[in-house]
Lab assay of single mutants.
Amino acid sequence: KQVQVGDEKYTFDTPEEARKFAEKVAKEKNLKVTEKNGNFHVE
């Protein structure tokens, strides 16, 4: 599963790991997490 933050992409083995990372980054940057096709976008 992938997490996209701006132009950066991070790959994780499980959706749970990806979601945790996305939520942590979103909180730090005051952004929101959206899920698209099983991948997460922080925007």
Rank of each mutant, 00 (worst) to 15 (best):
D7V: 09
K20V: 10
K32I: 14
E35R: 08
G38V: 01
E43S: 12
V42Y: 02
E16A: 08
N37Y: 07
N39F: 10
E28G: 06
Q4V: 15
Q4G: 03
F21W: 08
E17P: 00
A26T: 02
P15H: 13
F40A: 04
V33N: 03
A22L: 04
K24H: 08
H41S: 09
F40M: 05
V25S: 04
N30G: 15
V25E: 05
F12K: 00
E16K: 05
V25M: 11
T11V: 12
R19H: 05
A18W: 02
R19I: 05
V5S: 03
F40E: 03
E8K: 14
V42T: 04
V42C: 06
K9M: 14
V5E: 02
K29L: 15
K36P: 02
P15L: 13
T11C: 14
K27P: 01
E17R: 03
Q4P: 01
K27T: 09
N30K: 08
R19S: 04
E16P: 00
E16Q: 08
K1D: 03
N37F: 07
E23V: 07
V5Q: 02
K27N: 10
K9E: 07
E28M: 09
V3D: 01
K29P: 04
K27A: 13
A26N: 03
F40H: 03
V33I: 11
A22T: 00
K29C: 15
E43M: 12
P15K: 13
P15V: 15
V42G: 03
V33P: 03
K20E: 12
E43G: 14
K9L: 15
D7M: 12
E8Q: 14
L31V: 07
P15G: 08
N30R: 08
N39R: 10
E17N: 06
Y10R: 04
V5G: 01
K24T: 09
A22W: 05
E28Q: 08
G6V: 04
E23A: 08
E35S: 07
K29A: 10
K9F: 14
F40L: 12
T14E: 06
D7E: 11
F12L: 02
N37E: 09
K29R: 13
K20H: 10
G6D: 06
V3Q: 01
A18M: 01
E35K: 09
E8F: 13
K27R: 12
E16L: 06
F40S: 02
E35W: 11
K1N: 14
F12N: 00
G6I: 05
A26H: 01
V5N: 03
F21P: 00
R19G: 01
A18T: 01
K24V: 06
A22K: 02
H41Q: 10
A22N: 00
L31T: 07
K1Q: 08
E23H: 10
E28D: 11
F12A: 01
E35C: 15
K27V: 08
D13H: 08
K29F: 14
E43W: 13
N30H: 10
D7G: 12
E8I: 14
E28V: 07
D13W: 06
